[in-house]
Design a protein around this nucleic acid. Structure first.
Lengths: 129, 129
DNA sequence: CCGTATCCTATCGGATACTG
DNA sequence: CAGTATCCGATAGGATACGG
């Protein structure tokens, strides 16, 4: 997810960067789960229940690359790999948790707004006013 | 833009929902700009500088639908349409701003982590080999 | 058990042309 | 100026098969 060109004050670039990263699909989910406790690959997959190996791997790789997640390979047979949040990851968890709290608190407002919009929309979408 | 099925505790669903919405591409940018002042369509487009009409329209529609943005059509010729944050939108601005602040503060840490990762596993970064 | 590679589809998102 | 419709490339992401 390239952050595209941006002519705005310094606010936009890092924010779009982070948002594109953690807002991608499963990242917040993974971060939240790992914020609770370190988990193995399979445990994460089972907990999430709906993610493909490919996406879980990609998500973890990206998170690891960004320094949010630490991959701990025990090098055993059968393989055992544990993932845990780094300090940066736990740090990120704070504003993410705040956003999560907001989302839970205002969830119904958003849903109502959507219903209102969808109800008003078909009569409006043709013209303005 | 579906949030997919999710078997997790109540945390994940609304968060993924919100994150998928505002983390999509331009939404945070638009919200941040409108958080400063109401703006017309063309002003937004010029300020962002890199967004297409299609995407700006889509982004604003989605934001309007979710109740974050109010579309004010003056019904004049030539057309004049102003967009501003609703109360819900301004409310959302709070955790988003917090995340933005975090992003700015930790931007270098992330970049360093990426460099470290790319330096440590050059053969894995590309994915194809 | 922990991945990787490939295929395939849906969506994202830009460029462009057109309307009112 | 504000917005829509269409075409097109790029990417996200699931299903599956294969490998250590």
């Amino acid at each position: 997810m390239k952050p595209q060109i941006c002519h705005l004050p310094s606010d936009c670039r890092p924010v779009s960067e982070i948002l594109s990263r953690i807002g991608d699909k499963w990242s917040v989910l993974v971060i939240t789960l790992l914020g609770d406790a370190p988990l193995r690959f399979g445990e994460l997959k089972r907990e999430i229940g709906g993610i493909s190996q490919k996406m879980l791997t990609a998500t973890l790789r990206a998170l690891e690359r960004d320094g949010f997640v630490l991959r701990r390979d025990y090098g055993t047979v059968p393989p055992k790999v544990e993932y845990e949040l780094t300090e940066l990851g736990r740090d990120l968890l704070v504003p993410v948790t705040a956003l999560a709290a907001w989302a839970r608190q205002n969830q119904t407002h958003v849903e109502e707004a959507r219903r209102r919009f969808d109800d008003a929309c078909p009569e409006r979408t043709g013209g303005s006013g």
